[in-house]
Write a protein that binds this DNA or RNA. Sequence first.
DNA 1: CAGACGACTGAACGAGTGTTTAGTCTGGTG
DNA 2: CACCAGACTAAACACTCGTTCAGTCGTCTG
Lengths: 219, 219
Amino acid sequence: MNVRSADDLTTRARIRDAAVVRFGRDGFRVGLRAIASDAGVSPGLVIHHFGSKERLRGECDAHVRRTIREVKAEAITQWSPGQILGEMSNAAEYAPLVGYVVRCLLDGGALAAEFVEGMVADAAAYLEEAVDAGTVRPSSDPPGRARYLIATTVGMLVIAQLEADAGRGVSPTVDPAGALGQMWQTVLLPGLEMMTDGLLTSSDLLDEYRTAMAGDPSP
Amino acid sequence: MNVRSADDLTTRARIRDAAVVRFGRDGFRVGLRAIASDAGVSPGLVIHHFGSKERLRGECDAHVRRTIREVKAEAITQWSPGQILGEMSNAAEYAPLVGYVVRCLLDGGALAAEFVEGMVADAAAYLEEAVDAGTVRPSSDPPGRARYLIATTVGMLVIAQLEADAGRGVSPTVDPAGALGQMWQTVLLPGLEMMTDGLLTSSDLLDEYRTAMAGDPSP
DNA sequence: CAGACGACTGAACGAGTGTTTAGTCTGGTG
DNA sequence: CACCAGACTAAACACTCGTTCAGTCGTCTG
């Protein structure tokens, strides 16, 4: 117990890391036997250490949560919130974590909701700073705008995962992190265009919506 | 066989419809017994009609695909592509289909990839028309822009599903379609703002990217 | 050295799954 | 009527899953 904090390569930690990788790559449906095999261990030992598969996943969640928080803390000044996952996927060390988070997103656990809310909060803070600095336009609904932008990131993660899964049968070497990077390249230019000039040529739609909401704000 | 096309309420169709609803609400992990029970039928009969659970899902896919194509065909002139799912979720008749599609998106089957590509293609066509009509700005990468916009829609679907799942324990009456509608309301104003004015106050970032790409277009 | 404790394994258990099988009921046909 | 094909069911089968259990090994302790 006292050794674990100093040397994080105990069997227990090895099982946990193997579980994160397996969960991230194959989803949460994988059997304990596959995880145990990856860790070079018997299925019974996994239960011996973690009590149940659910508690194993709980520790994986906590571990991923903690790691992301650390990376985020030291990177908050460098990148925009939406890019954190992209940058993490570039570092091979953190690539499995990205896969794990995407799986959580698809599976819909508590970590997923918390992760999305965290991204939204980060984006809101980041946008507020940028608005104060004068580089980003102010919005009449800052939290809503943050949600809107994070939705785009989440959608790209999901679509990248979709294509990574689809290509797995043909070329098993396709990894979600690579697919995500490719995805970023594809939409970076259109995204920038969208962010600088917008999409519409006139403000008619926005004006219509605003006057409609002024008359009847209920829907 | 000749009866089925005239009257679509054969036992076979009833099982298929029950499967679509169950798959959409609980995901593809639900057992055949639950589906059979919903259809008022024994588990064996499901196999008798469809051969296997996988083939049952295949017929569900085909049915959803066909229905969406029909709805799309008669609605293509009215709504923008991203709104089709939203409008469908309002019609109670089609609400289960929306849930099914979202589940496919999360599960990552062939229908999911096809569905996303279909939405992207629709969005691209819709945007091209709008550009010609002068209501939407031209883009230097129209397909990329379509992908970017559809990613936002997909992300909102996923997040809405996330929150619908999270609230299920507290209030089981929350349906994905309702969550989706609520989601739309939340981000409609910020989305419109974004589309009319953009996000950034200057074109520095875009210009930087363009000059960088002009010098080294490889990455 | 004796004893105890924790890591660890291999085999088994019980519950769940999709599927099979034997058999019943029903409606139409010669 | 006899017959039969198909819809349909109840029970069982085969398999996988998470989990349990009895027991072995090595190490530390008194």
